[in-house]
Amino acid sequence: MKKRVGVLALQGAFREHRQVLEQLGCDVVEIRKVSDLEGIHGLIIPGGESTTIGKLLNIDGMGEEIKELAAKDLPIFGTCAGMILLSKTIIDSDQYRLNLMDTIVERNAFGRQVASFETDLMVSAMGPNPLRAVFIRAPFIREVAPNVGILAEYDGKIVFARQGNLLASAFHPELTPDQRVHQYFLDMIDEYWAH
């Protein structure tokens, strides 16, 4: 099956996700309006500004439509701003969110841009070699409910997690040549559509 993967293209680094997915053999749809969601096998919510993307999601009912897809267990992967938007709780913020993952997220949790960094991250689900992970004004997950699996921590902070068919990373796998994280998400899509 040729996978048809949507990348939310309201604002942010959607082009980089598109490139990785195309290299991995997917058809990619840039999602700007509700009708673009039709027929996708999975959805990526990219990095960007979570307040900006949230406002744009909340204008024409796109957010509600994505929630309905999530209720049917459609695989959704959020990176950075995407992770914030997936979370049910965002510390000190009442901004719009999709309210899907049982996580408590803290925004800009490592500090302002001058504290942004890249590092080697061990993710056992990705094999023995570390991932080069890029953190930009990144959030982390302060707490997860028992139904959320922790895939990676950095400095004792949760930066990669999965809850059913929802996947969230605080870092940006689309900015490095390593495709293992995207492949992991595509495997989730395969599993889902095999049933």
């Binding site: 293209a9 309201l10 604002q11 942010g12 680094a13 959607f14 082009r15 980089e16 990095g47 960007g48 500004e49 900006t52 950075c80 701003a81 841009q113 001058v114 504290a115 942004s116 960094f117 890249e118 590092t119 080697d120 890029v134 953190f135 930009i136 004004r137 940006h172 900015l175």
Partner: peptide, 19 residues
């Protein structure tokens, strides 16, 4: 760990795109 690398500098601009 590398703070303030070219990757994270250009990376923030990537996140601002479309905005």
């Amino acid at each position: 760990t590398d703070i303030g690398s070219l990757k994270v500098k250009t990376g923030l601009a990537e996140m601002l795109k479309g905005g």
